[in-house]
Amino acid sequence: MSNSVLADSNASQSTRLRRWVTGGLAIAILIPSLWGFGSKFVEFIALYRGDADGAFAISPIVNYLLASFGFLCLFGWATFHGMFRDIEAPKYAMLETERQLDAGATGGLSASVGVGCASTVRLALADKPPVAPIA
């Protein structure tokens, strides 16, 4: 058997194992969580229906759901717009922007801390000692 076939077979086994582990963890985490959430939600509905003043519990819950839903949408938007693709890039770009601002070289800067020149910036920083002295 050639090396490439062996490598493919190992990779396939590794993928299968990863799927089993992911699936197992998903079941182990999601089922108790959903059960917990579901039972609490049923309790909440019962309170709302059974108690004349029970409706007051709705306001904080609705507040929380509204706030969280907005951020869930924002999280989805950010993910689909590649905000987390090169996740470490902005930290290098930010430092480089600051360096150039302090040097007075604002003319050549075009965008923001998330600019596409991040990899160049990273290379530039890599030439420097990891811990620069406090100037």
Partner: peptide, 26 residues
């Protein structure tokens, strides 16, 4: 980072902190 003249240790972890705050704090 600008005072230490080096980037934050992990930008990914900083985002975990941000989204954790967003979902758990309210």
């Amino acid at each position: 980072p600008i005072l230490l003249k080096k980037p934050i240790w992990s930008h990914g972890l900083s985002l975990v902190g941000f989204w954790g705050l967003a979902f758990f704090y309210p």
